[in-house]
Design a protein around this nucleic acid. Structure first.
Lengths: 136, 136
DNA sequence: AGGTGGACTGATAATCATGTTCAATAACGA
DNA sequence: TCGTTATTGAACATGATTATCAGTCCACCT
């Protein structure tokens, strides 16, 4: 394989993936993130991006949103806590929403259900104010 | 493919798919439903099952849960209202949960966000009491 | 009843996101 | 420097879903 510019970074392609994710203003899919990185000049394979995101998901460093089409979209988790997001269907801009009420509701449902190890997913998708204007 | 109002014309096969779904005690994937129908002696193609479920989803006659693997699981919507479910990760048993608190929370978040046409997804997955016992 | 046109069906192929394989290789320690 | 080992990434595999399209069925008209 040709090492064209010799700009081989230290062993942290994975770190590069997470850094790129941090720099994303909107939620992105693995493929979008890969394209973005390549466009910026980072030499990285799609597999590595998938691997890094899966690992980050398992270790709780990113939040995941399942799009309706069965693709996953990621967002860097800024605070320590897991968050829920309101995502724009048009431009994919995302903003975290306060979810204390939902967390409390989930806790009460779980306690009276007899279920154990309950995980919850809350997803909100709509059209943001800017895209509403742009639709005219 | 579709008539003026976007609804598929009723047909023997399509009705059979929804009837089969009604008879399912747990949430099922399209493929599971197809296998189930074939096992019962119904002659039907996988494509038709997918089509019927997609149409039912679009017209709001079924509830959909996205499994972690990117597969969709369906449940016949018994009341008129859309529901949320607590699903067992082991046996796929599902029970509807009262979600008034969540609906109210969603409404308030939406009203102060400036977003329009917001749709929400709430999914709860855990291990039901029976499967907890069976795990011993 | 018989014909006709459009809708439905289903086998197959295509697509799409993601996972796995494995030879090449970069990082690290002796 | 040399060898060991984990990481990488291109190609391939997989699994769910969707599109294609020729054949079939059905409703309606005469």
């Amino acid at each position: 394989m040709s090492t064209a510019d010799g700009q081989l970074r230290p062993s942290h392609r994975r770190t590069a993936v997470l850094e790129a994710l941090k720099g994303c203003p909107r939620i992105v899919s693995a493929q979008e993130l890969h394209m973005r990185m390549v466009a910026e000049g980072t030499r990285i394979g799609l597999s590595t991006v998938y691997r890094a995101l899966r690992d980050a998901e398992e270790t709780g460093r990113v939040d995941v949103v399942q799009a309706g089409t069965g693709e996953k979209r990621y967002r860097w988790r800024r605070g320590g806590e897991h968050r829920h997001y309101l995502v724009c269907r048009v431009c994919a801009a995302s903003r975290p929403v306060g979810a204390e009420a939902v967390e409390a509701w989930v806790a009460s449902v779980v306690s009276e259900s007899g279920f154990a190890a309950v995980e919850h997913t809350v997803e909100l998708a709509g059209v943001c104010a800017r895209c509403q204007r742009a639709a005219d």
